[in-house]
Nucleic acid binder design. Structure first.
Length: 266
DNA sequence: AATAGAGTCAACCGCATTACA
DNA sequence: TTGTAATGCGGTTGACTCTAT
C-alpha cells in the first residue's frame, strides 16, 4: 500500500524560507494560533507544505527561541538527559527552555558526541568496572559493556577463547542485543577491514600510525581479537581491553585516535 | 587566492502516534 | 471499534560556512 503524500510536491516551495514567507507565517499564527497545519498554507497564502510550516514555526519563528551557542551548563544537562532518555530529543528539549529538539539533536550529533569519544573519563561514559571492557564501535554508535571474559597471559589460548560461540552470546546479551541480525543493522557500516589489521595485538596499531605520530602508542594491556570470521563478515569490530580508564585517561584518547585514524569513526 | 574537506544546522522524509468522525 | 487525517518525532540530507593546505 502506498502512503498518500501530505502535499503536492510539484506545487509547494522547498528549501530555505524567505523573509516574506516568515512574515506571512508569523502573522497567521499570531492571529489564529498554532495548529491546523495542513490548512495553514492555503489560508496564509503560503506555497509550503503544512508540515514544513509547522517545523519552521517550532524551530525558528516561535517566540522564546534561544539562539546562539549552547552553554557549558546546557551541554552538561543534555548529556545527563541523554543518559536518562536516550535519543528522545523532544523530551530532552522540554528541560532546556528556548532550545528546540532539532537544535539539541544537531548539537549532540556534531559536537557532544565527538567530545564524549575524546574524553570518556571526563564525561563518565565508560563503565566503572575492573572487568575487561568490551567496546563495540560503529560509525555513529558506541556501546560499552563489562563482560566476564576470561583473560589469560597467553595470547594464543586467549584468542581461542574468543572464538567460542558462548563468549559471543554472552557479549550480545550484555549489550542487550540477542540475534546477530540486529547487530548487523546497527553496525553495518563499521570498517572491519582496517580493524582486522590489529588481529591479535594492538601494541603497535600500525606502521602508518607510527609514521604519522611521533608519540609512542604502546599499550601492553590492550588486546584485539578477530573473534569470529562470521562476525567480521557482518563488518563488526570488537575490541577488548582491560586497562582501567580512570587509571589511564590517555588510553581513551589513544583508542579514539586510532579508530579515527583508521577511518572507523565518521 | 583557490580548493578540498570538515563542521554546522535548517529543512525534509517517512514512520509512529494521536485525534476524531 | 475502525479507518482516516493530522500531528509529532527522530533520522537523514544537503547547502552553506569555516578551516587547513
Amino acid at each position: 500500500m502506498v502512503r498518500k503524500p501530505c502535499c503536492n510536491k510539484a506545487e509547494v516551495r522547498r528549501g530555505a524560507w524567505a523573509i516574506e514567507e516568515d512574515m506571512l507565517l508569523t502573522e497567521y499564527v499570531g492571529k489564529h494560533g498554532e495548529g491546523k497545519w495542513r490548512a495553514l498554507p492555503v489560508n496564509a497564502g503560503l506555497r509550503r507544505c503544512g508540515k514544513s510550516c509547522r517545523l519552521r514555526w517550532f524551530n525558528y519563528l516561535r517566540p522564546g527561541i534561544k539562539r546562539g551557542n549552547v552553554s557549558v551548563e546546557e551541554e552538561d544537562l543534555i548529556i545527563e538527559l541523554h543518559k536518562k532518555f536516550g535519543s528522545k530529543w523532544s523530551q530532552i528539549a522540554e528541560h532546556l527552555p528556548g532550545r528546540t529538539d532539532n537544535e539539541i539533536k544537531n548539537h549532540w550529533n556534531t559536537t557532544i558526541k565527538r567530545k564524549l569519544l575524546m574524553d570518556g573519563t571526563k564525561f563518565n561514559i565508560w563503565p566503572k568496572c575492573k572487568k575487561p571492557r568490551v567496546t563495540v564501535m560503529a560509525e555513529s554508535n558506541i556501546i560499552n559493556t563489562c563482560t566476564e571474559i576470561p583473560l589469560s597471559d597467553d595470547p594464543k589460548s586467549e584468542k581461542e577463547n574468543y572464538n567460542h560461540e558462548d563468549i559471543w552470546a554472552t557479549l550480545l546479551q550484555d549489550l542487550g542485543l540477542e540475534p546477530k541480525d540486529q547487530m548487523q543493522n546497527l553496525l553495518d557500516t563499521v570498517n572491519g577491514d582496517e580493524m582486522r589489521r590489529g588481529e591479535t595485538s594492538l601494541s603497535t596499531p600500525s606502521a602508518e600510525w607510527e609514521g604519522k605520530n611521533s608519540s609512542s602508542t604502546t599499550d601492553s594491556d590492550s588486546f584485539f581479537y578477530d573473534i569470529d570470521e562470521e562476525i567480521w563478515d557482518l563488518d563488526i569490530g570488537i575490541s577488548t581491553f582491560n586497562s582501567e580508564p580512570e587509571d589511564d585517561p590517555e588510553d581513551n584518547l589513544e583508542w579514539f585516535n586510532w579508530f579515527n585514524f583508521n577511518g572507523v569513526l565518521k
